[in-house]
Design a protein around this nucleic acid. Structure first.
Lengths: 112, 112
DNA sequence: AATTAATATCGTATATTTACGATATACTAA
DNA sequence: TTAGTATATCGTAAATATACGATATTAATT
């Protein structure tokens, strides 16, 4: 980013939030992790590693990214761990994005 | 990525598509560009540059990212250009993500 | 207490993204 | 034809993401 500051902070908080969540969703491995957590009724741990074509450390890193974005909740619990999809946060994104999209769609008649 | 290949190609095409679109949406400047295009009834050009805290080349780069992801259509037209939101593609993402989200939500009862 | 198992974190290399200024391109206007 | 304007692309530096192996951590088991 050059000499060079990240200017993300200059945008509306809502846009920052949408972008932040979209970023967490921007790798297919993380989509797959969410699906694994959901279809297993959540609360998985090392099964995620077996379900993905990555080393354990890489999977842990991807889970951390989802956790940092609040799309996954839970943490270590003894020798294993307990994670699950934070559907409240996912729903927030889904609704905010849908409402943004609907605004875009309203403008379509004037489009090129 | 190490020695080290990008393994994105190993995932389901639908997941790759969701991740790809999410990536295009993962910077607030690009959300703002979509909003500017939409609220101006699309077909803008250099107004986008004035609406953003970036150099012209940077804005052009962000528009290209949106264009590559098919979220924006149009191109140069004489001295200026004509871009607009591709709401068909946006709608596809919105629907696919919503359906994914609904599946996640169904599993919530079993969650931790 | 020592071993095992599950997970996170560290260190690292490489790839990609972000941002800029400079330049190229291509149309418009003079 | 020349000058001006709008936009894209190039070159580049710095930041961030991706992926791995090695190691640390912590609880359960022996």
């Amino acid at each position: 980013m050059a000499l060079t500051k990240d200017k993300r902070g200059q945008f509306a908080l809502k846009d920052q939030a949408i972008a932040r969540t979209a970023k967490a969703l921007s790798h297919p491995a993380r989509i797959e992790i969410l699906r694994l957590l959901a279809t297993n009724g959540a609360c998985i741990c090392g099964e995620v590693v077996e379900g993905l074509p990555y080393a354990q450390s890489t999977v842990s890193q991807h889970i951390k990214a989802l956790h940092d974005a609040d799309l996954v909740i839970g943490s270590i619990e003894g020798a294993s761990s307990c994670y699950c999809v934070n559907w409240v946060e996912l729903e927030k994104f889904q609704k905010e994005f849908t409402s943004l999209f609907l605004k875009f769609k309203d403008q379509f008649a004037k489009c090129c």
